[in-house]
Simulated assay, not measured.
Amino acid sequence: MSEKLNNYLIETLPQQHQWVTELEAKAKADNVPIMDRAGIHFVMQLVRMSKPARILEVGTAIGYSALRMLDANPDSSIVTIEKDKERYEEAITTIDKLNRQSKIEVILGDALDKLMELSLQKNTFDLIFIDAAKGQYQRFFELADPMLNKNGIIISDNVLFRGYVANPENVPKRYEKMVERLRKYNEMLMNHPNYTTSIVPIGDGVAISYKQS
C-alpha cells in the first residue's frame, strides 16, 4: 500500500483513547515496533466480528496490540509471549496500570519454547496473532496450529515487509533471508489444505488464515 493511501486511512480513523495515544507515542520514542493505526484498526475489526473467547499472541512488545484486541472484545482472555525482558516488564506495568491483568497473561520466554509448553498443556485458542521474529513465522504457525480451534483464525502481521516480499529483486542484503522466508511462508499459507487465507495490503501486510478443519 502506498504511504499516501495508508496515511489517508489513518486520518479517517475515529479519535482514540488517551492511553492509546500515549502508548503509541512511547513506542515511537523508544523505537519499539508496533502495528500502525490502520493495521491495528483492521485487526480489531476482525476481533469484533469473530468474538474469540481466547486469544494467543506471539510477540507482546510493550502490550499495545494485546490491549487493543482486548478493547475490541472485552470478553476475550489473552495469553501473550515476549522474550525481551525489558519489554515484558513494560507490558506488565502498562497492563497493570490499565487494570487489565485479569484478562491478559504475559509470558516471558522464547516463543518457540513457550508455544510447545502451551501445546503440551492442551491449551486451545480461537484466534492466534503472530507478530514476532519474521524469519520464524512458519515454525510459529506449525506450533500454533494444533492449538487453534476449528473455525479459528490465525493473523500474521508484516507478511509483505515494506513491500520487499513483492519486489525481491530490490531487497537490501541484510533482509534477503528473512524476505525469502516470508515469501515461502505466504506460499504455504495460500496452499495449506486446512486453511483459507487472504493477504491484505494494509499496514505492512496482514494475512488472515481461517481454519476449516
Rank of each mutant, 00 (worst) to 15 (best):
residue 183 R to W: 01
residue 111 A to E: 01
residue 93 T to W: 09
residue 195 Y to V: 08
residue 32 V to M: 05
residue 130 I to K: 05
residue 55 I to A: 02
residue 10 I to G: 05
residue 170 N to Y: 03
residue 24 E to R: 14
residue 190 M to P: 03
residue 134 K to F: 12
residue 150 K to I: 15
residue 157 D to P: 02
residue 30 D to F: 12
residue 64 Y to N: 07
residue 148 L to Y: 04
residue 95 I to A: 04
residue 139 R to W: 10
residue 172 P to K: 08
residue 201 P to M: 08
residue 119 S to K: 14
residue 75 D to T: 06
residue 79 V to Q: 01
residue 102 S to E: 15
residue 162 R to P: 06
residue 203 G to E: 10
residue 210 Y to G: 06
residue 70 L to W: 14
residue 46 L to F: 12
residue 150 K to N: 15
residue 162 R to G: 08
residue 72 A to I: 07
residue 24 E to P: 02
residue 150 K to D: 15
residue 98 L to W: 03
residue 136 Q to Y: 02
residue 42 F to I: 11
residue 121 Q to T: 06
residue 6 N to F: 04
residue 153 I to G: 07
residue 13 L to V: 12
residue 122 K to T: 02
residue 121 Q to L: 10
residue 183 R to V: 03
residue 60 T to P: 00
residue 12 T to R: 08
residue 144 A to W: 04
residue 74 P to A: 03
residue 44 M to L: 05
residue 28 K to C: 10
residue 168 P to F: 00
residue 206 V to N: 01
residue 100 R to K: 15
residue 74 P to E: 11
residue 100 R to Q: 09
residue 113 D to R: 07
residue 207 A to R: 00
residue 97 K to I: 07
residue 159 V to E: 01
residue 124 T to V: 07
residue 53 A to F: 08
residue 10 I to R: 06
residue 163 G to V: 11
residue 173 K to Q: 13
residue 79 V to I: 14
residue 52 P to M: 02
residue 132 A to V: 11
residue 56 L to H: 09
residue 205 G to L: 07
residue 54 R to V: 09
residue 63 G to V: 01
residue 10 I to Q: 11
residue 89 E to N: 13
residue 120 L to H: 13
residue 191 N to V: 10
residue 89 E to V: 03
residue 111 A to Q: 00
residue 134 K to W: 11
residue 195 Y to F: 13
residue 66 A to S: 15
residue 198 S to F: 13
residue 198 S to D: 11
residue 198 S to M: 13
residue 99 N to H: 13
residue 113 D to V: 12
residue 152 G to E: 07
residue 9 L to W: 09
residue 45 Q to L: 10
residue 189 L to F: 05
residue 43 V to H: 02
residue 12 T to G: 07
residue 131 D to F: 05
residue 109 G to Q: 03
residue 96 D to R: 11
residue 105 E to D: 13
residue 48 R to G: 09
residue 9 L to K: 09
residue 92 I to S: 00
residue 125 F to Q: 07
residue 165 V to K: 00
residue 141 F to G: 01
residue 193 P to I: 01
residue 30 D to V: 10
residue 15 Q to K: 14
residue 51 K to R: 15
residue 116 M to Q: 15
residue 71 D to W: 06
residue 61 A to T: 08
residue 85 K to W: 05
residue 52 P to L: 02
residue 55 I to E: 04
residue 209 S to D: 11
residue 106 V to Y: 00
residue 9 L to Q: 06
residue 204 D to Q: 05
residue 110 D to P: 08
residue 167 N to Y: 10
residue 199 I to K: 02
residue 83 K to T: 04
residue 56 L to S: 07
residue 16 Q to A: 15
residue 71 D to M: 08
residue 184 K to L: 13
residue 182 L to E: 01
residue 94 T to E: 02
residue 141 F to K: 00
residue 182 L to K: 01
residue 17 H to W: 03
residue 37 R to I: 07
residue 133 A to S: 13
residue 89 E to C: 07
residue 40 I to L: 12
residue 204 D to K: 02
residue 186 N to W: 04
residue 198 S to R: 12
residue 48 R to N: 14
residue 175 Y to H: 15
residue 181 R to M: 13
residue 159 V to H: 01
